[in-house]
């Protein structure tokens, strides 16, 4: 297969970036998108040019590191898959493919397609946990959890923190990410004692990071590689509302 690529190249955070054209041939349909970029980079290095910087690590769709905006969509056209799980058979021979970084003010570009998503870590640091020190726990089976709640919590906990929700959202909102963690811990009894603090502190941090506001467009849900649901955002709204009303 042959493709025309338009890739965002930007030397560093301060530099001006632009789309650069590349043509790549002899691509096998069974290659993953990242393997296609590997081949392109290999060509570039051999020609003495600077290879394209991009984030990637596990290449099995779970670490959340890969993060490209491909042909106008976060993680590309394949549903419920990260970029590393996108295969070239999803494209047509001769396609022109745009490759851009995840764009949001809260995700500044480091180089080319690599962005700084540490805002997510700072949000988690404000409450995405249960405050239990090592060694304090009671026997695990002393705390039964409704199976349905446990399943819903797991659905929310599947979030890989890749930032596709922010990238896909026309408003650059991070609500799907934040709500997934708030939901997971709100659904489980372990999260109960801190739920009000958690909702307020995490939402405050999210706002401070400069993410946009949610207007219930639903692009995040549609593009989430782990199919995190909008119901989580509704739950976060409830949690936050209740917490705000009783906050002393």
């Amino acid at each position: 297969m042959k493709f025309n690529l338009k890739v965002w190249r930007q030397k560093n955070a301060q530099a001006q970036g632009k789309l650069v054209d590349y043509t790549i041939e002899n691509i096998i349909p069974d290659m993953s998108f990242l393997e296609m970029v590997d081949v392109l980079n290999d060509n570039l290095v051999r020609k003495g040019e600077d290879p394209i910087a991009f984030d990637h690590d596990c290449r099995e769709g779970i670490c959340g590191m890969c993060s490209m905006y491909i042909s106008g969509r976060a993680h590309g056209p394949h549903h419920a898959a990260t970029t590393c799980q996108l295969y070239m058979r999803s494209f047509k021979d001769g396609d022109t493919i745009y490759v851009e970084p995840f764009r949001a003010g809260a995700f500044p570009i480091i180089k080319d397609l690599v962005t700084d998503r540490s805002a997510f870590d700072r949000i988690i640091a404000k409450g995405g946990f249960v405050s239990v020190n090592t060694g304090q726990a009671q026997d695990a089976n002393n705390l039964p959890v409704d199976k349905a709640d446990a399943e819903k919590a797991m659905d929310a906990a599947a979030c890989i923190g890749c930032g596709a929700c922010v990238a896909a959202c026309p408003n650059s909102a991070a609500m799907l990410f934040v709500s997934a963690k708030i939901s997971q811990l709100a659904l489980l009894p372990q999260g109960g004692p801190e739920r009000n603090n958690r909702a307020i502190n995490m939402v405050n941090q999210m706002d401070e990071e400069g993410f946009g506001n949610c207007t219930n467009i639903g692009a995040c849900e549609a593009e989430c590689p782990k199919e995190i649901k909008l119901t989580n955002i509704a739950r976060m709204n409830r949690e936050y509302l209740v917490a705000s009303l009783i906050n002393e």
Binding site: F129, V130, V132, T134, G135, Q136, A137, Q138, D139, A140, N141, L143, P144, V145, D146, K147, A150, A153, M154, A157, Q184, L185, L188, Q190, G191
Partner: peptide, 22 residues
């Protein structure tokens, strides 16, 4: 054994049976 206790206390959503136990 302590690991499981610790992780459950942290809110790790382990698979459960219908009775709510692990």
């Amino acid at each position: 054994r302590n690991i499981i206790d610790q992780c459950v206390a942290q809110g790790v959503p382990f698979a459960r049976e219908y009775g709510g136990l692990l």
